[in-house]
Amino acid sequence: MEQKIAIIEALLFASETPLAAERITEILPDIERTEIVSLLRGLMREYEVRGGGISLQEVAGGFQFRTRTDLAPWIRKLKAGRPAMLSPAALETLAVVAYRQPLVKSEIDRIRGVDASGALKGLLEKKLVRIVGRKDVPGKPIIYGTTRKFLEVFNLKDLSELPTLRELKDLQEQQE
């Protein structure tokens, strides 16, 4: 194996979090960023072709080794813990935040038709949602947004990878 690829593979293996191409460039300043990206893609393909239990995936703006989805039942046995699931209320609230961020709680309440305080608190505790700032209106309500961890947990490269929200059909159109 080429030395460069070996280094990158080792970095990926040792990294606690998804490793961004930029970070690798800092460690290997002699290699062009474009080359690093193409080496990463090559490595992704290599793991894919090998068809083993591990794949290299692009998440949260970086690259990370992850297990293959279909092997989850066995790994769950190893972990012996119940996977942390989100309740429907938490998922709905998270979806509203993800698509409408940055936003304030009253906007979430309005869309869901119920008070989102509980769900929002849980999401903050799980670090899927964070406080982005405060809105400059009376009462200075808190503005919320999703976190990097949200991208990691939901296997997203970035927010643009979220599927488009089904367009709300134009009501006027229907009435005419």
Partner: peptide
């Protein structure tokens, strides 16, 4: 969102 391969549920690091 819930159908995505979730970390610590469907994929593991």
């Amino acid at each position: 969102l819930d159908e995505r391969p979730l970390l610590e549920r469907d994929v593991f690091k």
